[in-house]
Design a protein around this nucleic acid. Structure first.
Length: 955
RNA sequence: AGUCCCGUAGCUCAGUUGGUUAGAGCGCUACCUUGACAUGGUAGAGGUCACCAGUUCGAAUCUGGUCGGGACUACCA
């Protein structure tokens, strides 16, 4: 092994080796265990969230593989309809070409070209993380197999009347020219205005107050061109006489009825609401109840039409409705139209008031523009039916969320689920398998041929396939079974479905998790016809945030690239990376400043293992993670520590020529030291703990357990305790063999324990010690995961070590507080010890002398006068360090009084408890006994220490 | 408006069914190049567990409320 730990030297090599040897593929033996990767967007690159989630998935995968399961971690990417189309369009725009110039087919070819060239970015990056996914099974949502599954699902749902087509209001993105689902709309608080308009009453009607107009308030004046009613509350006395009468819509001149509807809030504004059913979701419902027309005034760019279009609620165009658009409006963009409407009302004296108003504005999550509710023909999945069993599965515990509170989120959405608009007016995606004849009649089938056959359509009748494609999430919803070969090849489905756990973020519980549950349960059934869930557990991770708790985003310039943390990056490159492509110089400066302040030196190389360990150590449940680079540094040092511990092991299991020494791998007498028995005992407990942590998805606790054991027990104590054995010329062969064997086997077990989290360093070290550890095999990743053997738990050894540590810590404390050089050997005196103490000292004198750096140890009899000493208590036993020439009197007095003060405080608290009648009578006996024992110990300790202090004071 | 989460050391966080001397990492202070490791070691300082009330012999932990921070959903034109 090299003297220094350099992760770069080992990581990529081992990954290549594993992948080439096909270790990631399922073994074909044992119970199956399967995780489906949440398919990253093919346009994407690796971010901290991926690193976090994939670390967890890989840890689970490696753990189960080592436990002997037939383990599959299924990789792949999704085609990201809008995002990908936008990327390619942007590239084309550089050459001044639009997708319309190319036409649909050529454009799609371009997208595939792009995918071939750049779509692999994220999978290359994933390999750097050490992910043990089965690359031979990699899938892409636009692959023929998955596309086939999409078609199949669409056709079957249509045949079951669970997919339908209709003219409805949708969330229309006027920039991208496509419908989007309600989930893709981000509602943001923004400030705007509330305009109060006077609408003149028709036919000479007047209000109760005698006015010849009523006042409506709106935040979107431009929609008034499409008003088809004015609504008031049925119980609003101010207006009850007007219900059934009309207003005359200003500018337009249309007669519009006044209707009563309890959607209206009497107390809000004037209590009168203009109703524009074709441009507002609430108004749509009101209009429907009163059977008004739907009047659309916008084109797909959200510009005003020359003439409005009228429809009924069946979506049919209707005649006889006044569709007049006043002069000067046609072609105006919606905000220009708004301004003109307001100006025109003002000019007519109909603008009563303008107020500042904060409102919620819907924006497209991709385009960022304001979404327009717009009347179009779209395809929908009727979700209610599908949601029912999906809700039940979680209620019954067939699917469990970890942590559980996310089930609330899931239920609240599912119980009020809306139909899902699945058609998108894009080119990149799964084109909807529906065909229209020349009369516009629709036929749905897997292929055009199937449609013709089924409906007996002669070849000379022209059929045109629907132009639209399906929402990307529609194909993602099939991910757990489409990737396994459904519907054609069911073998892998039978083996691996239901999958075991889904690891994902809460941000896509609705988008993906819920829809996957619905689709899967509808299509995948057990032999007895009961639905199969897509996964049994959903482990919901927190979000990774920046050092200030902000969400990471490119536009904020606060993203961390996991690869930069692994490889390191200097500050100049980091600044360049974060500010490149920024349009605003001001923002650029701000980001540069913040970056330089947060990371003045950039990042040092940490390696994948350290990053992964950092991820798991922060993975507590139900909490976002403020990523702290300092933690990463700490765990990089931890890796270094493991590396050096392994070097120590190697140095003590080889002679100077590099020949391996006898570690008992081929038999021979073995004698174990106290330290050996202790570390083996502790190891069993750690193993049990790690299994438990995996079961409960407590990767943070697992990391803590491993960190603590490796650093504070194996390295800090055990390795030190092994030195006296190896350095003692009197050690027997059996003793040497015993300690060497323990040393190397515990290390080997540690490596297997950390392997799921730190695959590279564990493999690298394992390879160099496997033989002396008596292990066989090509790779640590195929070894068995350690299982605890309770018969190796040795309570006596643990207590003896505690005793030993107590003395050593005591001496170290005196050295530290008294400023005695660690190099100075001390003469130690013991007094007031029990037989147990005496026995322990006899057995462990060499350990003590070596670790506490002692010259000599002597017992004093109780009556023997001790020289002036610094004192520590171990139980009742006094450990004395004579002061002559070493110890400052005042310092020792200060140290003792500090100690006494602490004791006093504790004693007060405890005796308070014990004097409480109720505590003694009601608390469990064991608790009372424990408190009593404590108090007794403290009383003796106080007595001993204060006597000691008096003596020193009186010198 | 509703639902949920969080508030523990200077910072980032653990603390599993109520009983600990409330822990870890980083940072800080002092000392130490000792034959795995200065990417190290040893010792130390640092917390009225946001606040109030209640349940209990006993509360960081359970209940209710207050304050503060955050997330999601739904929104009144």
């Amino acid at each position: 092994m090299d003297k220094t730990y350099t992760p770069q030297d080992i990581e990529t090599n081992w990954y290549k080796n594993w992948e080439e040897k096909n270790y990631f593929a399922p073994s074909g033996e044992g119970d199956s265990y399967c995780i489906m990767i949440p398919p990253p967007n093919v346009t994407g690159s690796l971010h901290m969230g991926h690193a976090f989630q994939q670390t967890i998935m890989d840890a689970l995968t490696r753990y189960h593989r080592m436990k002997g399961h037939n383990t599959l971690w299924q990789p792949g990417t999704d085609h990201a309809g809008i995002a990908t189309q936008m990327v390619v369009e942007r590239l084309l725009a550089k050459d001044d070409v639009t997708r319309h110039d190319l036409g649909r087919e050529k454009f799609i070819d371009k997208v595939w070209d792009w995918k071939e060239q750049s779509g692999g970015t994220i999978t290359t990056q994933q390999r750097r993380l050490g992910t043990s996914v089965d690359w031979s099974r990699e899938r892409f949502t636009m692959d023929s197999g998955l596309s086939n599954a999409v078609n199949e699902v669409f056709v079957r749902l249509y045949e079951e009347n669970l997919i339908y087509r209709g003219k409805r209001l949708v969330n229309w993105d006027p920039k991208l020219h496509t419908a989007i689902s309600d989930l893709e709309v981000e509602n943001k608080d923004e400030s705007g205005f509330m305009w109060h308009f006077r609408y003149p009453l028709a036919d000479g009607a007047t209000t109760a107050e005698g006015k010849d107009y009523i006042v409506v308030a709106t935040t979107r004046p431009e929609t008034m061109l499409g008003d088809t009613a004015v609504a008031v509350h049925p119980e609003d006395e101010r207006y009850s006489a007007l219900v059934g009468k009309f207003i005359e819509l200003p500018l337009v001149g249309r007669r519009v009825p006044i209707v009563a509807d309890d959607y209206v809030d009497k107390d809000f504004g004037t209590g009168c609401v203009k109703i524009t059913p074709a441009h507002d979701f609430n108004d749509y419902e009101v209009g429907k109840r009163h059977n008004t027309a739907l009047i659309n005034v916008f084109n797909r760019d959200a510009k005003i039409l020359k003439e409005a279009e009228s429809f009924n609620f069946e979506g049919k165009a209707i005649e006889g409705v006044d569709c007049n658009i006043p002069a000067g409006y046609a072609g105006l963009e919606r905000y220009d139209a708004r301004k003109k409407i307001v100006d025109d009302f003002d000019a007519l004296g109909l603008l009563e008031e303008v107020k500042d108003h904060s409102l919620v504005v819907p924006r497209g999550d991709r385009s960022g523009v304001v979404i327009e509710p717009w009347l179009t023909d779209q395809w929908y999945v009727s979700a209610k039916t599908l949601a029912e069993p999906a809700i039940k599965a979680v209620e019954d515990g067939d699917i469990e969320f970890v942590p559980k509170q996310w089930e609330n989120t899931y239920f609240s959405w599912m119980r009020d689920i809306q139909d899902w608009c699945i058609s998108r007016q894009l080119w990149w995606g799964h084109q909807i398998p529906a065909w229209y004849d020349e009369d516009g009649k629709v036929y749905v089938g897997r292929t055009e041929d199937e449609v013709r056959q089924k409906h007996d359509i002669s070849p000379d009748i022209k059929l045109r396939q629907d132009d639209d494609v399906l929402d990307t999430w529609f194909s993602s919803a099939l991910w757990t079974f489409s990737t396994l070969g459904w519907p054609n090849d069911m073998e892998a489905v039978k083996t691996f479905h239901s999958t075991d756990v889904l690891v994902t973020g809460f941000d896509i519980i609705f988008f993906w998790v819920a829809r996957m549950i619905m689709m899967t349960m509808h299509f995948i059934k057990n032999d007895d016809g009961t639905p199969q869930v897509p996964f049994k557990k959903v482990y919901v991770t927190g979000l990774i945030r920046d050092e200030n708790g902000q969400k990471m985003s490119k536009s904020k310039g606060n993203v961390l690239d996991p690869i930069d943390l692994i490889d390191g990056i200097d500050i100049e490159d980091l600044v360049t990376k974060r500010t490149s492509g920024m349009m605003q110089p001001k923002l650029q400066q701000k980001i540069e400043k913040a970056t330089r302040k947060a990371f003045p030196e950039g990042f040092a190389e940490s390696g994948t293992d350290a990053l992964r360990f950092t991820m798991t150590s922060m993975a507590s449940l139900g909490r976002d993670i403020k990523f702290d680079v300092k933690r990463l540094e700490g765990y990089r040092n931890f890796c270094n520590k493991i590396w050096n511990a392994a070097r120590y092991v190697q140095m003590n299991t080889e002679d100077e020529q590099g020949n391996t020494l006898d570690c008992g791998q081929s038999g021979g007498d073995i004698e174990l030291s106290l330290a050996d028995r202790w570390i083996v005992s502790r190891l069993q407990q750690v193993e049990t703990e790690v299994h438990k942590n995996f079961e409960q998805y407590r990767f943070d606790l697992m990391s803590q357990t491993l960190y603590d054991f490796i650093l504070n027990e194996y390295c800090a104590w055990y390795l030190e305790l092994s030195k006296p054995v190896f350095w003692n010329e009197d050690s027997t062969e059996a003793q040497l063999r015993g300690s060497r064997q323990t040393l190397v086997r515990v290390l080997e077990t540690i490596l297997r324990l950390i392997h799921p989290i730190m695959p590279f360093i564990s493999e690298e070290i394992w390879q160099s010690i496997k033989e002396i550890a008596g292990a066989e095999g090509e790779s640590i990743m195929l070894q068995a995961f350690p299982e605890a053997d309770d018969s190796k738990i040795d309570t006596n050894a643990e207590q003896d070590i505690e005793w030993l540590k107590g003395i050593i810590d005591g001496v170290r404390n005196i050295r530290g507080e008294m400023n005695i050089s660690p190099a100075k050997p001390l003469n130690l005196l013991f007094r007031n010890g029990s037989n147990e103490d005496k026995k322990r000292l006899e057995e462990n004198e060499t350990f003590l002398k070596s670790l506490a750096k002692l010259e000599s140890i002597e017992w004093l009899t109780p009556e023997q006068e001790a020289p002036m000493s610094a004192t520590q208590l171990v139980g009742q036993m006094e450990v004395l360090v004579p002061m002559a020439g070493l110890i400052d009197k005042d310092a020792e007095v200060a140290r003792l009084s500090k100690e006494l003060e602490k004791l006093e405080k504790d004693m007060q608290r405890i005796s308070g408890k014990l004097n409480n009648e109720k505590f003694v009578s009601k608390a469990p006996e064991a608790v009372v006994a424990k408190e009593k024992a404590k108090l007794e110990d403290m009383t003796t300790a106080t007595k001993q220490l204060s006597e000691q202090m008096e003596k020193i004071k009186n010198i």
